[in-house]
Amino acid sequence: MARNVRHVPKDSSRRRVWVYIGVAAFILFDILLILWAINSTRATASGSAPRPIPTYTTTPATPVATPTATPTPTPTPTAGADSAGIVAVPATRILSAVSATTAWRASTGACPATAATPELTTDSGATWASTDATGPTKVTAVQSLSASSATTVTLMGLTAAGCAPEVVKTFVSGDNYKAYPEQVATSWYVNPANRAVVHAPAGQHPAPCDAVVSLAPRSDTAAAALCGDGRLFTTTDAAVTWSTPATLPGAIALALAPATSGYLVVSAGRPECAGAQLLTVTDALAPTVAGCYAVSTPATAMAGTVAVSEAAGTIWLWAGEQVVRSTDSGATFK
């Protein structure tokens, strides 16, 4: 009897082969996924280690200074750029006019070595008569002159003993002098021992600067003061307070200007004047150039050697070796 043979379709065999291939591919894919996961975890683990903290080099900021208030210093005596280095100093020549023909003058210097010998002219300065105030009063070093006539003049000087301020007068054209010590307390003056103080008729007060070199009193309460740095101040309350100053480069001499109720100032070393330049200054300290008197004295040697005064419409100027006068407000001198 013949055996029955099972017939296996060829398509079933092929399907089994593809099943095996698919299972193998799946297994291989799983293996690859596992390996990738392991490597990724290692990378993360290594990446989670603490990283170094970065450091930076910085440039320190420049400290900013805290602003502080700086007091305005008292100016050191210096001259303006156009004043040839001129610095005002105390006068060695003093002049006080009375009229167009009459005036008193004096040379001065250190105390007690310099005798007080005022001179008088009554002929417009053609001749001068010398007098002796030191002999009868022991006064020395004339500081100021205030003449009211050919016979009467008041001077402020310094005593031979101690060099203290002293008031001396003559009423006989200098034939004799007498001291009036009781009048010192009510007088205007600057003591050479301390030029940072001004003495007024009501008492002494701080000067407007470190060194007053010239004082021009107008009344018991009003006066002007010229400082060594060329600044000019006025006071109307007997030196208790002082005005805002006017700066006058090269200013070396100061006097009252009765004709204008202002002041006269002489400047040296100004480029527009080869000599003594005369300025008229109002009571409000507004200056105007009035004229120029040419002298051969070098500008740097003029400080302290020039004096000016006005009376009866005549301006007297002592500069160089001459005393000259002007009757046209300083426009011309002769």
Rank of each mutant, 00 (worst) to 15 (best):
Ala276Cys: 11
Pro118Trp: 03
Ala193Val: 06
Ser83Ala: 15
Leu33Ser: 11
Ala161Arg: 11
Asp30His: 12
Ser261Tyr: 08
Lys138Arg: 14
Arg51Phe: 04
Ala211Phe: 01
Val87Met: 07
Thr297Pro: 02
Thr62Val: 15
Trp188Tyr: 05
Leu279Ser: 07
Val306Tyr: 05
Pro258Gly: 06
Ala224Met: 10
Leu278Met: 06
Arg3Asp: 12
Met1Lys: 11
Val64Gln: 15
Ser329Cys: 00
Leu232Pro: 02
Gly269Asp: 05
Gly109Leu: 06
Ala222Asn: 12
Pro73Ile: 04
Pro118Thr: 00
Arg270Ser: 09
Gln183Thr: 08
Leu248Phe: 03
Thr151Ala: 15
Arg16Trp: 12
Val324Ile: 13
Ala216Met: 06
Arg218Phe: 15
Pro271Ala: 09
Tyr177Ser: 03
Cys273Thr: 01
Ser13Ile: 10
Thr134Arg: 08
Ala126Lys: 08
Ala133Gln: 08
Ala49Trp: 10
Thr108Ser: 15
Ala65Val: 08
Pro118His: 01
Asp30Ile: 14
Val19Ser: 12
Ser309Trp: 03
Asp210Pro: 00
Gly313Val: 02
Gly85Thr: 06
Leu254Val: 08
Ala239Val: 03
Ala224Ile: 01
Ala222Ile: 10
Pro52Gln: 09
Pro9Thr: 06
Gly304Asn: 04
Ala185Ser: 13
Pro9Ile: 04
Gly230Glu: 05
His199Ile: 01
Ser83Lys: 03
Ala311His: 04
Leu232Lys: 04
Ala268Pro: 09
Gln183Asp: 14
Thr102Ile: 15
Val198Arg: 11
Ser187His: 02
